[in-house]
Simulated assay, not measured.
Amino acid sequence: MANPSEDLINLCRAAVEAQRAATSEPYTKERWAAWLEAAEAFQRAVVEEAGREPKQSRLELEQAAKKAVLHPEESSGG
């Protein structure tokens, strides 16, 4: 399985937190803009990090980062 960097995990965490904030209250363009910006930053970082290693799957890297954020107990081996 892919091993995302701490920076990538932090960007994923920021996107997840922005999503929670955006969807916790009625829609506003400003609230959703923060979520979209965070998600775009995460996706750019995934593409960049995946491109650093030959044969690194962007999908596997993204999934590993999301698992580390959303299911830390599973990704830590416990």
Rank of each mutant, 00 (worst) to 15 (best):
residue 58 R to Q: 13
residue 12 C to S: 14
residue 12 C to M: 15
residue 65 A to P: 08
residue 68 A to H: 04
residue 14 A to G: 05
residue 20 R to E: 11
residue 67 K to F: 07
residue 61 L to A: 04
residue 52 R to H: 02
residue 18 A to S: 10
residue 9 I to W: 00
residue 9 I to A: 01
residue 73 E to L: 11
residue 64 A to Y: 02
residue 40 E to S: 14
residue 70 L to V: 04
residue 6 E to P: 00
residue 46 V to N: 04
residue 20 R to T: 09
residue 31 R to E: 02
residue 54 P to Q: 09
residue 65 A to T: 12
residue 70 L to K: 09
residue 43 Q to W: 01
residue 74 E to D: 13
residue 11 L to S: 09
residue 71 H to F: 13
residue 46 V to Q: 03
residue 29 K to V: 09
residue 6 E to A: 10
residue 74 E to C: 03
residue 67 K to G: 02
residue 67 K to I: 14
residue 64 A to G: 03
residue 46 V to A: 04
residue 7 D to Y: 03
residue 16 V to R: 13
residue 19 Q to H: 13
residue 74 E to Y: 12
residue 52 R to L: 07
residue 61 L to G: 02
residue 75 S to E: 12
residue 42 F to K: 08
residue 45 A to R: 06
residue 49 E to G: 01
residue 64 A to Q: 06
residue 11 L to E: 09
residue 62 E to R: 15
residue 39 A to L: 07
residue 32 W to R: 13
residue 75 S to R: 06
residue 39 A to F: 01
residue 16 V to M: 07
residue 32 W to P: 01
residue 59 L to N: 05
residue 46 V to Y: 01
residue 44 R to V: 12
residue 39 A to T: 02
residue 47 V to C: 00
residue 73 E to Q: 12
residue 75 S to F: 02
residue 42 F to H: 09
residue 55 K to T: 11
residue 57 S to I: 05
residue 49 E to L: 03
residue 36 L to C: 07
residue 76 S to A: 09
residue 40 E to I: 07
residue 59 L to T: 08
residue 58 R to N: 01
residue 46 V to M: 05
residue 21 A to N: 14
residue 51 G to M: 07
residue 54 P to R: 09
residue 29 K to W: 08
residue 44 R to K: 15
residue 18 A to F: 07
residue 28 T to V: 06
residue 68 A to M: 07
residue 17 E to P: 03
residue 64 A to R: 05
residue 38 A to L: 07
residue 5 S to Q: 07
residue 71 H to M: 12
residue 58 R to Y: 00
residue 7 D to F: 03
residue 55 K to Q: 14
residue 42 F to L: 08
residue 69 V to M: 01
residue 52 R to F: 00
residue 28 T to A: 05
residue 62 E to Q: 14
residue 16 V to C: 08
